[in-house]
């Protein structure tokens, strides 16, 4: 770098308004949230929160295991005592609930956790991100290619594909909930019609196996227009001469796509993927409006759990603990990812 040509305080002057704003309205509340995690503060309470040490973290993160041998066998299948009865009756297991169970020989091992709903929500959120990010980016890319093909009316079509982004999520959710309805919804009617009645109606939002995929489809549909726009910009940034040259060399459309379009879009796609991932990890509204976290917790996300405990049950200390732990996990992932990328060279930030 060259010699410094400005006074040492200049950068601080330029940065001050934004940094003060971020410190006051982002960092400070976050620090407050961290402090809250060590208290038992509630939103409505006659007393200020008292210091409770790591209790919230213990309640959120403790895991254990329970190994059982069969009590007896019925019709060849081993029968075990009810886990809940054991955990609720034994002080050593106070506060623990079953998360999942597996068999080891004739023993049954039950993984216990003090807040299995949080761990389930963590898994659900990861699943959502893993499903929605590729789907939404692929959809967006397809749309971008389509509205960039120079067809008539493409401005109108861009607006149409973009329209779900600006629509009220509540209304979008109402319409989709109807589409997904088991008995009258369009989805099942279409499936039944296409399969000539072979496919039985699916209760999309009511079945633990299909609820999350349904949310994924709806979310990808809702957000793809936004990514389409950014990708469209990337497409237009690729030099037309490259395509012309390739065409002269006799490259097929597919070859042009693979060898020119995709490499040219690499940075844009990366950016879009990062933005989509951040949004996916914060999934809340769709779940809150469409499934309320159900059925049986299969669509509850981390933010849903944080709002449920922190806002609706008014246990703001516990809600803050969920947010802080989640934030720490994501930060860890970013730091690791950045480190790997730095070793490879390049990166978004």
């Amino acid at each position: 770098m060259g010699v410094r040509r400005h006074s040492p305080i200049a950068p601080w002057l330029f940065g001050a308004p934004a940094l003060i704003g971020l410190m006051l309205f982002l960092v400070l509340p976050f620090v407050m949230a961290v402090i809250l995690t060590f208290t038992d503060q509630r939103l409505v309470s006659p007393r200020p929160g008292a210091f409770v040490g790591l209790r919230n973290y213990q309640r959120l993160l403790s895991v254990g295991a329970l190994v059982q041998t069969p009590e007896r066998s019925a019709a060849g299948a081993p029968v075990y005592a009810r886990v809940r009865s054991i955990t609720r009756g034994n002080r050593a297991y106070a506060g623990y609930r079953p998360l999942t169970a597996f068999r080891l020989g004739n023993r049954r091992v039950t993984v216990l956790a003090t807040d299995p709903a949080f761990l389930q929500a963590l898994g659900n959120t990861m699943l959502f991100a893993v499903l929605v990010v590729p789907l939404q980016c692929a959809m967006a890319l397809g749309l971008a290619l389509l509205v960039n093909a120079g067809l008539r009316g493409q401005t109108l079509f861009r607006a149409i594909f973009f329209s779900p982004v600006v629509m009220s999520m509540v209304i979008v959710s109402v319409v989709w909930a109807f589409l997904f309805n088991k008995d009258l919804g369009l989805f099942n009617q279409a499936l039944g019609w296409i399969s000539l009645g072979a496919v039985r109606p699916v209760d999309w939002l009511g079945n633990p196996a299909t609820a999350m995929p349904a949310i994924v489809i709806m979310s990808a549909w809702q957000g793809a227009g936004f990514q389409m726009l950014i990708l469209l910009a990337g497409l237009q940034g690729i030099s037309q001469e490259l395509y012309d040259a390739a065409r002269l060399d006799g490259a097929s459309a597919w070859q042009r796509f693979v060898h020119i379009t995709l490499p040219g879009l690499r940075q844009t796609v990366l950016f879009v993927a990062v933005v989509t991932t951040i949004a996916a990890l914060g999934l809340f509204t769709q779940v809150d409006v469409m499934t309320g976290g159900g059925p049986r917790g299969t669509t509850a996300t981390v933010m849903f759990e944080a709002v449920r405990h922190g806002v609706r049950e008014e246990n703001i200390a516990y809600g803050a603990t969920i947010s802080v732990v989640y934030f720490a996990l994501i930060t860890l992932v970013i730091v690791v990812q950045q480190a790997i990328r730095r070793r490879r060279g390049g990166g978004v930030a």
Binding site: F30, A33, F284, S323, I330
Partner: peptide, 9 residues
């Protein structure tokens, strides 16, 4: 990555 829901209260 700090979600707004985390700091709103």
């Amino acid at each position: 990555v700090v979600p707004f829901e985390a700091i709103s209260v």
